[in-house]
Amino acid sequence: MSHKLTMIIVKPGLQTTIQDLGRSGWQEFGVPVSGAMDRRSLRLANLLVGNAVNNPCLEITLLGPEILFDGNGLIAITGANLSPAINDHPIPLHLPIKIYAGDRLSFGKYINGCRSYLAVHGHWLSPRWLNSYSVVPYCDGFPSLPPYIKKNHHISIEYLRLPEKEITIEKQSIAESIIEVIPGPEFHEFSQESRSQFGNETFEITNQSNRMGYRLKEKLTGPLVTRSLISSGVVPGTIQVTHSGQMIILMADAQTTGGYPRIGVVRSADLDILGQKKPGDTIRFKLIHWT
């Protein structure tokens, strides 16, 4: 017999979305890749509760939601530490935790990181589009698409039986702040001054940063690449430099094409590090040779 539980979103929090590993393959039609900003944490959360690694999770940003569980189940939280608690009792990260009907999950004080991932064991009965449960940016007005989460949103989950073997993993560090970057198509057009600034200085993430892109505070100086480029396909991790020298790192929900000079592209694994950075955090870039 199958079991069912429902998560009732009592308070949605700052930005809580359903995410999986996204929908790659449709960029040529302008569909962003989307998916978790920290894919490693999403995979780990799913492993902990015995799900497939690309199962959807709730991606929870800085100020967590309040969730009521209507049914028994198994959950795990990874990524940022936003002081999760069940019925006001703190619970640890990186451990599978049984929950019971009537339990209330809440979040409290900010400890570290930017995004938590909440995995729940079982099959999520949420809308999917192009093989992904991730909400589709820039697509208002289509009720059949995966929705943004609002107050009183219900997410139902079905499962046969909870896994018996307890999985443990090593605690993950999210303190890393060195981002490896492969030189971009226009890298060599930038002046020696800009390039050395890019490779040696520290950059702060501004509050004009979200799932589409991070804007950095310190601008590149010196002669910049100001010729206008004809738009071409870009990927999450692309670091665009605007004509004023501001850098924008494209993130999971970025548009699929862009027309700014690209000084570099973040190594795909290091996007997970960026996904845990919040406005005010600083990063450094390390250029790596790539063939």
Partner: peptide, 11 residues
């Protein structure tokens, strides 16, 4: 995995 054809480029 994917192609992004644009004006005068292919990703």
């Amino acid at each position: 995995r994917y192609y992004i054809p644009a004006y005068c480029s292919l990703t």
